[in-house]
Design a protein around this nucleic acid. Structure first.
Lengths: 196, 196
DNA sequence: AGAGTAACCGAACGATCGGTCGGGACAAGA
DNA sequence: TCTTGTCCCGACCGATCGTTCGGTTACTCT
């Protein structure tokens, strides 16, 4: 049996606990004492698995960033008409956000107080820039409205997608991931007003 | 001369400094030492003007909440067809967010660790609920698309508007408040895709 | 001149911060 | 049985946390 033994921590399982607490209390609002209570082991035992608090943060935001950048490597994000690639990236972003929700949540809340946080912010800006390029291309193709500047439109669309981390909860019988992705794509591209 | 003397702090002027630092470092990531450096007075002097760190937070989020709830009392938000009221509230939210940017920014980032923060979260939920009711009415009128559930649509629209605090900076020659409000209303109601 | 007060300060408080240290319990391999 | 390594612990570290205290300066009012 390969699935047995599951009572001891690994860096990964400890990370999942830590990320949950980070999101509940905020990274700065979480002490190692909080983490030790949530994990059920002593504070010093945490250091047997990870180097410290900041490494937990680095592991978490790395996982989120890998998921996001992975989207840009997919075929549908690289080939085809820009507006179609933009729509694909939009949908995939929703999927990655919901799949890696706690990690992306943490990523979107870093403020830049430490070196790790500043690195995360820089990578985020890089991702945003890549998507903004896509929006720019779609605008050049004449496929998106010209009366909203592409940089502004990009930020607003990012805002809508990223807001998922503030309210989406995957458990139980809420809205499903597919339903959210459909709603976001519809609202972003077609708008709220009923089509006549 | 009534405009002279402006070198001593009042609770209000101290608040504006504190809110700026809170937004730069996060509330939990800001120490009273940070505040004293930013204000140019000693740590203990801060307590001459305000009761403590949490009172600064309470004053700040109160100001933001007053601005937001004030919208709902305005005439255009109370009378008329629901979809028109919704459009009005959307535009006014952008205006309040930009006008009270640092205060609303702080409000949107509270996590609920203290009593003050939990109170702020509760009032925010109340505001969100009021706007969701508006969306529900517009849907009942048949004025907004029926293929996106109204609660989901409300959250996504809130997400787009609230994302302003992550990037909008009023200084210098960036995008103006009016331009942002126009862009948000257009994207929310008409969508990104070019109209044929 | 004297009293009152607003604005500020340095020093210190107990508590908590992230992190270190030496060692105990226990299972596996020899 | 002895060694080795994993996993964990309580006790403790110096630093920093939000806050308090006693006092000084400077201005206003009488």
């Amino acid at each position: 049996m390969t699935t047995a033994k599951r009572d001891t921590y690994t860096p990964e399982t400890l990370l999942s606990v830590a990320v949950r607490v980070f999101n509940e209390r905020g990274y700065d609002g979480t002490s190692m004492e909080h983490l030790s209570k949530a994990a059920g082991i002593s504070k010093s035992s945490i250091y047997h698995h990870v180097a410290g608090k900041e490494e937990l943060l680095r592991r978490a935001v790395s996982r989120a960033l890998d998921g996001l950048f992975g989207i840009l490597d997919e075929e549908h994000a690289r080939v085809g008409r820009a507006v179609r690639r933009l729509e694909y990236v939009t949908r995939r972003m929703v999927e990655v956000l919901t799949a890696e929700l706690p990690y992306v949540t943490l990523l979107l809340r870093v403020r830049g107080n430490t070196g790790t946080e500043r690195w995360a912010l820089e990578r985020r800006r890089e991702f945003d820039h890549r998507v903004a390029e896509l929006m720019k291309e779609a605008a050049a193709d004449g496929d998106v409205r010209a009366d909203v500047e592409f940089g502004l439109a990009t930020r607003l669309v990012f805002g809508m997608i990223n807001s998922l981390v503030e309210w989406y909860r995957p458990d139980g019988r809420g809205v499903g991931e597919r339903e959210v992705a459909d709603a976001v794509v519809r609202l972003v591209f077609e708008g709220l007003r009923k089509e006549e």
